[in-house]
């Protein structure tokens, strides 16, 4: 099966982002709530999916910008924990993620109304990611070719195919797993790849795990 040739090659792409500074800012939890309600989808993306990719080298305790601000800017560890508990891998849509972020912040405001108006050490500035994608001009037709090209895949490209793809595919999957199944018929490899925990791995670590899974598949 590992020697199968795809009908459609895997085309490696990289994504690059420029950060747009938005108008919303928050000095209190209440203002964070208002910002979460009114900010753009690109802003939700920036502070969650994109932030996780940008801080991939942190494997303990970093989940998203909102949680980090609740901890460092507001000194509210309880709220920070709950916001950090939202795993971006569980979301295929930014609107669903926004609903859950709002739910956590609303619950906090209801439970601790006094704390909702307390000012932070520093403001939270809403930003948004403007994405540009560029083909890398590399195509894999077989798993062997894919494995070789994976070595040359940088952080941004891996993050784009492995994590951001969920939003594009609207599936709890990723570009790699989809290709393994649809083009090579490698269901098991696809499942194992999709289970790699990007939150507790660095991007390099996740890539190395994927490479090991492929090596095992090729050796089988």
């Amino acid at each position: 099966m590992a020697l199968a040739r795809a009908h459609r090659p895997f085309q490696f792409v990289t994504a690059s982002y420029i950060t747009r500074i938005e108008r919303q800012r928050a000095l209190t939890v209440g203002e964070l709530r208002d910002g979460l309600e009114s900010c753009s989808d690109e802003s939700i993306f920036h502070h969650t999916f994109q932030s996780l990719g940008q801080h991939h080298f942190l494997t303990e305790g970093f989940s998203n910008d909102f949680a980090q601000w609740a901890l460092a800017g507001l000194n509210r560890p309880r709220l920070a924990e709950q916001l950090a508990g939202l795993d971006v891998r569980a979301y295929c849509s930014l609107s669903d993620l926004r609903v859950d972020l709002l739910r956590v912040v609303d619950d906090f405001c209801r439970t601790y109304p006094d704390e909702a108006v307390r000012e932070a050490f520093e403001a939270f500035h809403f930003c948004a990611s403007v994405e540009v994608t560029v083909p890398l001009g590399r195509e894999a037709w077989t798993l062997e070719e894919f494995r070789a090209l994976l070595e040359r895949c940088g952080h941004a490209s891996f993050h784009f195919h492995f994590l951001v793809s969920r939003l594009r595919l609207q599936l709890e999957s990723n570009d790699f797993s989809q290709w393994f199944v649809e083009e090579l018929g490698l269901e098991r490899l696809a499942q194992l790849a999709n289970r790699i925990d990007i939150v507790t791995h660095t991007l390099d670590g996740a890539k190395a795990t994927l490479a090991r899974l492929i090596d095992r598949e090729l050796a089988a």
């Binding site: 690059s16 560029v134 890398l136 040359r152 895949c153 940088g154 952080h155 490209s157």
Partner: peptide, 15 residues
């Protein structure tokens, strides 16, 4: 930085 990051820079600059 590793060759990957520089390769990506070249790809982004190509267009």
């Amino acid at each position: 930085l590793g060759p990957q990051e520089i390769d990506e820079l070249r790809a982004i600059a190509a267009p």
